[in-house]
């Protein structure tokens, strides 16, 4: 990878803050949706869309593009804000999230939104879909890569492990999957709901190359993505240790903000916090 300067990294952090602001505003306007898992996924999305992936927002159907599949579809606001900031569609569309006649459905739909690769929202499908895309890439001798993000709770689905076996069996080294390891789902902590224990060992034992990193450090995410791309003959799993609700103090590690949008006061408070961070980063960039 090309070495990013301190300034370039700061710029990425700034983009992440702006995406988090979009998420808060979108969910506030929509009056429904999922803040926690959207906020925890942002930094990986920034690393992928603003540095790592080979993609062109003007050519969303380019057959050679890298693909990103958001298997944890309820984090749609994070994906939509990332796509809009990347230039796939006008940022103004974000205000129509979850409203009638909108291109931004509550959960991603590949037939509605430019840049959305797969229709998700029913958890557990994304990795299987990614395997299909990766197998097609091998058949067609294309060198695009497939990136897939799942929730940690999502990996309780049996289908995820069927997909894990297939990716390993077919040596799909063109797949890099990520788990947003925030330790929370809806009914509580993942270890109380249905313990996942050592996520890393599970994936290793299925034949995956596994990397575990801090999921809000864009530099580390980029390094892990490079390592994944250079791993041959096996798929790679990057376990992103994250904080659900990251960036908004009262949402962080708070299971109550899984699927409840901010009210007006909460939105104002969240925007204030994020704006302070934005100002700080802008000052550092000067």
């Amino acid at each position: 990878m090309k070495k990013l300067s301190q300034k370039e990294l700061l710029k990425l952090d700034l983009i992440a803050v702006r995406i988090r602001k979009h998420i808060i505003e979108m969910l506030y306007q929509a009056k429904s949706g999922h803040p926690g898992g959207s906020l925890s996924a942002v930094d990986a999305l920034v690393a992928l869309y603003f540095v790592h992936m080979n993609h062109n927002p003007k050519k969303p159907n380019d057959p050679n593009r890298d693909r990103f599949i958001l298997s944890k579809g309820h984090a749609a606001p994070a994906l939509y804000a990332t796509l809009a900031e990347s230039g796939y569609f006008n940022v103004k569309e974000l205000g129509k999230l979850r409203k009638i006649n909108s291109i931004l459905q509550g959960h991603p739909v590949c037939t509605s939104t430019p840049g959305v690769e797969a229709s998700t929202g029913s958890l557990g499908h994304g990795l299987s879909f990614s395997n299909g895309v990766a197998l097609a890439g091998k058949l067609d001798k294309k060198d695009y890569k497939v990136y897939c993000m799942m929730g940690d709770g999502e990996t309780e689905e049996g289908q995820v492990w069927e997909a894990a076996a297939v990716a390993s069996h077919y040596k799909l080294d063109n797949i890099t999957a990520m788990i947003d390891r925030n330790y929370l789902q809806i009914d509580g902590n993942t270890e109380d709901v249905l313990k996942l224990e050592s996520v890393k060992e599970r994936w290793s034992s299925f034949g995956w190359h596994t990397i575990e990193i801090e999921g809000h450090n864009i530099k580390k995410i980029l390094e892990a993505l490079d390592q994944a791309d250079n791993t041959k003959n096996k798929p790679t799993m990057i376990i992103l240790n994250t904080i659900k609700g990251k960036g908004v103090s009262f949402m962080e590690n708070n299971v109550d903000f899984h699927g409840v949008p901010p009210n007006q006061m909460e939105r104002n408070y969240a925007m204030e916090e994020l704006t302070q961070l934005e100002i700080k980063l802008e000052a550092q960039l000067k």
């Binding site: 309780e156 689905e157 049996g158 789902q185 809806i186 009914d187 709901v193 249905l194």
Partner: peptide, 29 residues
Amino acid sequence: DADLSKSTKTIMFAKKYPERFFEMGIAEA
């Protein structure tokens, strides 16, 4: 229930009869 007990309201039973409530995680099949 499969990680939706707060929405389906089975949480009410879970609180009253925890030993007869089984949280199955996000694994419906």
